[in-house]
Simulated scan of single mutants.
Amino acid sequence: MEIIILIAVGMLASLCGAIAGLGGGFIMVPILALMYVIPVSDISGTSMAVLFVSAISSTIAYAGQKRIDYRSGLTFAVAMIPGSILGAWTTGVIENRVFFVSLGIFLVLMAISINFKPKKSRDGFLKPNVSRSLLDASGQRHEYSFNMTFAAVVAFFVGFLSSLFGIGGGSVMVPTMILFLAFPPHIATATSMFSILLSAFVGTVSHAVLGHVMWDKFIWLAIGALAGGQIGARVASKIPAIAVVRVLSVCLLIAAVRLMFKG
Rank of each mutant, 00 (worst) to 15 (best):
F180S: 06
V244P: 01
F26Y: 10
S162N: 11
L198C: 05
G64F: 14
F157I: 13
V247Y: 00
W215K: 05
T91V: 15
K66V: 11
L74H: 07
L253R: 01
A222K: 03
L226C: 11
L181W: 01
S14P: 06
I105P: 09
P240V: 05
P82G: 03
A190M: 11
V205W: 14
K119Q: 13
F183M: 10
S41F: 06
L135T: 14
I242C: 02
L86C: 14
V235G: 05
M260I: 09
F146E: 12
G83A: 10
D69H: 04
G263I: 10
R132E: 14
G224Q: 04
R234L: 13
M148Q: 12
Y36M: 10
R122W: 04
F116D: 05
C251Y: 02
S133R: 14
R122S: 12
I19D: 04
M214G: 00
T75G: 13
A225E: 02
I81W: 02
R132V: 15
A208E: 12
A77P: 10
I81L: 11
P240H: 05
I38P: 04
V209H: 09
T91L: 07
K66D: 14
F165W: 09
S121C: 04
H186I: 12
G25R: 00
R246D: 10
S249K: 02
L109K: 03
M177D: 01
P82K: 00
A152Q: 09
A182E: 02
G168K: 03
I3F: 11
P184T: 11
S58H: 04
V101I: 15
L107F: 13
F125R: 04
I19G: 01
G228H: 08
I242F: 04
P30M: 11
H212L: 06
W89H: 13
S237C: 09
L32V: 07
V158S: 08
S138Y: 02
M148V: 15
K66S: 15
A151W: 08
V202C: 15
A63I: 13
Y36R: 10
M173T: 04
K262Q: 13
S57V: 10
G92T: 07
L179E: 03
E2H: 11
V108L: 14
D42F: 12
R132I: 14
L22D: 02
A18Y: 10
A111H: 03
V101Q: 11
F106S: 12
V29A: 13
I196A: 13
G25H: 00
L34K: 06
S249T: 10
F218G: 00
K262N: 11
V130L: 11
C251I: 11
C16I: 14
A225V: 09
S14K: 02
F157Q: 05
I5Q: 08
V174D: 05
I4T: 14
K117F: 08
M1S: 14
L259P: 00
G263Q: 08
K117D: 07
I81S: 06
G87F: 06
L12E: 03
S195G: 15
N129G: 09
V250E: 06
A236C: 07
P39H: 09
S199W: 03
V202D: 05
G168S: 10
P175T: 01
I239K: 00
A33C: 03
G232I: 05
F160L: 15
F52N: 02
V247W: 00
V98A: 12
I56R: 03
P185I: 00
K262R: 14
M1A: 13
I114D: 06
G169H: 03
